[in-house]
């Protein structure tokens, strides 16, 4: 049974200079095999230069129930964004 083969999340860096992004998941008996399976599955069309694998069980995720307390408070602070500020026309390098 693959029940003993845990699920792994795969993150691929598509080229140098970019961060790793989630590509998908797969089953593997251990980390070494997970890395190899990820290489075979998620980079066979030349999609990556680096791979991370993480046991799915090790990921702690924010809960959708907490979405409001977590994320709503940051919605009303537009002064954190540069577009908030009015600058006279013609001022450069700002």
């Amino acid at each position: 049974m693959t029940q003993n083969w845990p699920l792994w999340e795969v993150f691929v860096r598509s080229r140098r200079g970019l961060s790793h992004t989630h590509a998908g998941s797969l089953h593997a008996p251990d980390a070494e095999m997970a890395l190899r399976n990820a290489r075979d599955l998620y980079t066979r069309r030349n999609e990556g230069v680096s791979i991370w694998v993480v046991p799915s069980a090790q990921i702690t995720a924010s809960s959708p129930d907490e979405r409001d307390p977590f994320f709503a408070p940051s919605a009303d602070k537009p002064y954190r964004h540069p577009t908030f500020y009015e600058i006279p026309e013609g001022v450069r390098h700002l």
């Binding site: 049974m1 083969w5 008996p29 251990d30």
Partner: peptide
């Protein structure tokens, strides 16, 4: 089945 079991046993 024996292959999957073997890999799991090794990981264990």
């Amino acid at each position: 089945a024996w292959v999957r079991e073997a890999a799991a046993a090794h990981a264990e």
